[in-house]
Design a protein around this nucleic acid. Structure first.
Length: 210
DNA sequence: AAGACGGGGAT
DNA sequence: ATCCCAGTCTT
C-alpha cells in the first residue's frame, strides 16, 4: 500500500531543503502579511523569476494598505507593467482600500473575508492563510495541478485536485510543503520536458518516463 | 462557460 | 511562431 507521506510528502520536503528557491525576497522571514499578499498578487500567472526582479522596490514603496491606497493608479501601473496583467495595479489599490475600510488595515485571516477582496481568488486566499497563519492546507496553482495530476495519474479539475492537495498538506510546515510543490514543479516536474531521470519520486510516479 | 488581461523567457 | 507562467475578473 502506497504511503503518500513517505512516498511523496517527505521526499518533496527533503528535496526542497536542498534545492528549493530559498532566496526569493517575499520568503524572507520578517515579511508582513500585507507584503505576502502583495507578492501573491504579483505572482498570479507570472514567473517567480520575473517577480523577484520587481518585488523589493514594490514592497518598499507600498509597505502598508494605506500607502498603496493613497498612491496614484498610474504610479502603481508603472511598477506592475514589466510583469504584465497591468489591471493588477487597480486590483491592488482597491484591495488595499477594502482592507482599510473593512478590517482597519489588517490583512484578514479568514478565508471568507480574503476571497471577498478584489483580485484575491481561491489560490491567493489560501496562500495567505498558509504563509500568514500556518494553516495546514494547500493552494492549487498551475504547478501543483500539474504535479499532482502527473504523480497520482488523475485527470481532474482544480477543485478535485484541491481536495487531494489539502489531504497531503502537513498540519505543521504547510508553508514549506507549499513551497516544495511549487519549486519542485517549476524546476523538475516542468510543463515541457520534465526531468524524470533525476526525479526523486520517479519510481512511484504514475507518469514516470522510466 | 468562454474571453480578456500581458510582458518576457523558453522551445 | 507557440507555449507557458504562484489566476482572477468580467461578459
Amino acid at each position: 500500500m502506497f504511503d503518500p507521506q513517505r512516498g511523496f510528502v517527505d521526499p518533496l520536503l527533503a528535496w526542497h531543503e536542498r534545492h528549493g528557491r530559498h532566496d526569493l525576497p517575499w520568503r524572507e522571514p520578517d515579511r508582513t502579511p500585507f507584503e505576502i499578499l502583495l507578492a501573491e498578487v504579483l505572482l498570479q500567472r507570472t514567473t517567480a523569476e520575473a517577480v523577484a526582479g520587481a518585488y523589493r522596490p514594490f514592497a518598499a514603496r507600498y509597505p502598508t494598505p494605506g500607502t498603496i491606497a493613497a498612491a496614484p493608479t498610474e504610479e502603481i501601473e508603472a511598477l506592475v507593467a514589466p510583469l504584465g496583467l497591468v489591471k493588477r495595479a487597480a486590483y491592488l489599490r482597491r484591495c488595499a482600500s477594502e482592507i482599510l475600510a473593512w478590517n482597519s488595515g489588517d490583512v484578514p485571516r479568514e478565508h471568507s473575508e480574503l476571497v471577498n477582496l478584489h483580485g484575491v481568488g481561491e489560490y491567493t486566499a489560501r496562500s495567505v492563510l498558509i504563509h500568514v497563519t500556518g494553516l495546514g492546507i494547500a493552494a492549487v496553482d498551475t504547478n501543483v495541478k500539474r504535479l499532482l495530476s502527473r504523480f497520482f495519474g488523475v485527470t481532474a479539475d482544480r477543485d478535485r485536485i484541491a481536495v487531494l492537495a489539502d489531504a497531503l498538506a502537513p498540519s505543521t510546515r504547510s508553508g514549506d510543503f507549499q513551497h516544495a510543490m511549487l519549486d519542485f514543479a517549476a524546476e523538475v516536474c516542468t510543463a515541457g520536458s520534465p526531468a524524470c531521470s533525476s526525479c526523486p519520486v520517479r519510481e512511484p510516479c504514475a507518469s514516470s518516463e522510466g
